[in-house]
């Protein structure tokens, strides 16, 4: 069971919060806060789990997810998607693109941690 998590998120406070939560649980958290270079960041970091925001500057989380699923080396990467938009259409969109887990902001810390553990255990 790996322990590397890549967090792609542009809100500094949210990055800080998630990093704190996961680090306390023993995860190694890397962060990235830009859309266009996100895929490269994933390939570089080769995380065990990806936490991906939807609203990113440059390129949306959906597009990044599509790229990941289309990229053979990382196609199987578990992806936990976060969005503040909270519309069912977004969830359907994410699922059709092969998201592993979809969570709406705000979330409880326990919920986040449980989801990360669950996905990493697969």
């Amino acid at each position: 069971m790996g322990s590397n998590v890549l967090l792609i998120e542009d809100e500094p406070n949210i990055i800080e919060a998630i990093r704190f939560i996961l680090a306390r649980d023993g995860w190694h958290v890397q962060t990235h806060s830009e859309g266009t270079s996100a895929l490269a960041a994933v390939l570089r970091a080769r995380p065990d789990l990806l936490i991906l925001d939807v609203m990113l500057p440059g390129r949306s989380g959906f597009d990044i997810l599509r790229d990941i699923r289309a990229c053979a080396e990382i196609a199987a990467l578990p992806v936990l998607m976060l969005t503040a938009k909270g519309q069912s259409r977004d969830r359907a969109m994410a699922e059709s693109l092969g998201v592993s887990r979809f969570m709406t902001k705000p979330f409880s810390n326990a919920e986040m941690l449980a989801a990360v553990r669950d996905l990493a255990a697969r």
Partner: peptide, 8 residues
């Protein structure tokens, strides 16, 4: 939701 996420 974004600020509320941080707050929560």
């Amino acid at each position: 939701r974004t600020p509320m996420t941080s707050i929560r």
